[in-house]
Computed example of a mutant assay.
Amino acid sequence: MSWILRTGASLGVAALALLGSAPAHADDASYLAALDANGVFKSGPPNARLSAGHRFCSQLRNGESPDQIVDSYARRPSFGGPSMVDDLTVNLRPVIDIAQHQLCPDTLH
C-alpha cells in the first residue's frame, strides 16, 4: 500500500475515533428524561415542562444566577390540590440544574 493510502486510512480512523468520543448533544428529550430520572417536575405536559426549562435558560443567559431565579420565582397558590406549579416550586433548584446541563450547558461556569 502506498504511503498516501496508509496516511489517508490513518486519518480516517482518527476522525472516526474523535467522532465516537464527542460528548452527547443536549436537547429537549434529554432534559425531559433527566427530570424523570431524578424524580423532579414530573407533573404537567412535556411542552410546559420544556417551556419552563427554556425560560430558565433565557434567564441564565440574561445574567441571572440560579439563586436569583429561585429567589424571584413567582409562587402562586394552587386551588384544588397539587399542581405543576407546586411541583416546580418544591423542586426548582434541581430543575434549573438539569436545564443547565441538558438545555443550556453554555450557562455553566
Score class of each variant (00 low, 15 high):
G8V: 11
I69K: 05
S72T: 12
D36V: 03
S65E: 01
A26G: 15
N91C: 08
A48H: 07
P94F: 01
R49N: 04
S21E: 03
S72L: 06
M1A: 14
H101K: 15
P46R: 02
S43D: 14
D87A: 13
Q102G: 00
G44N: 08
D71R: 00
M84G: 02
G20Y: 13
I98G: 02
P46S: 04
H101V: 05
P105Y: 03
G12F: 12
R6N: 06
G44V: 10
N47M: 10
R49D: 07
A37M: 05
S21W: 12
S10N: 09
D36K: 15
I98Y: 07
V40A: 06
W3K: 10
D28I: 03
G8F: 08
L35V: 04
D28R: 08
G80I: 08
P82F: 04
F79E: 07
G20Q: 13
A34V: 07
A34R: 14
S72F: 04
T107H: 11
S2D: 14
L19A: 09
D28A: 15
K42R: 09
Y73P: 02
T89S: 15
S83Y: 08
M84H: 01
G12N: 04
E64V: 00
H101Q: 14
V70N: 01
M1D: 06
G63M: 13
D71Q: 09
S30D: 03
V13I: 15
L11H: 04
M84P: 01
A15E: 02
D106V: 04
N38L: 03
S43K: 15
R61K: 13
P77H: 08
L16W: 07
V85C: 03
D86A: 05
V95M: 08
G39Y: 04
A9P: 02
T89E: 09
Q102E: 14
M1V: 11
P23I: 06
S10I: 09
T7L: 14
S30E: 09
S58H: 10
M1N: 10
E64M: 14
D36Q: 12
A29M: 11
A99P: 01
R49T: 01
F79C: 02
C104M: 10
M1L: 11
A52G: 03
D97E: 15
D28V: 15
V70G: 01
L19S: 07
A17F: 10
L35M: 09
G63V: 09
A37K: 14
P45M: 10
A48Y: 07
R75S: 00
R75P: 01
P66C: 02
S58C: 05
L92T: 00
R76M: 11
I98C: 04
D36G: 13
G8M: 11
R6E: 11
Y31V: 08
G12A: 14
H54T: 02
D87Q: 04
G8I: 08
D86M: 12
R93C: 05
G8K: 11
N91T: 02
D27F: 03
Y31D: 08
P46Y: 08
S72A: 12
D71M: 00
S72E: 15
M84R: 06
H101C: 04
V95D: 02
N47Q: 12
V90H: 07
H54R: 12
L18N: 01
F56S: 00
G8W: 05
V13F: 12
A29F: 02
D106W: 03
P82T: 05
S2Y: 07
V13D: 03
S58A: 13
D71P: 00
L11I: 12
S83P: 09
P46D: 15
S30K: 13
I96V: 12
D97N: 10
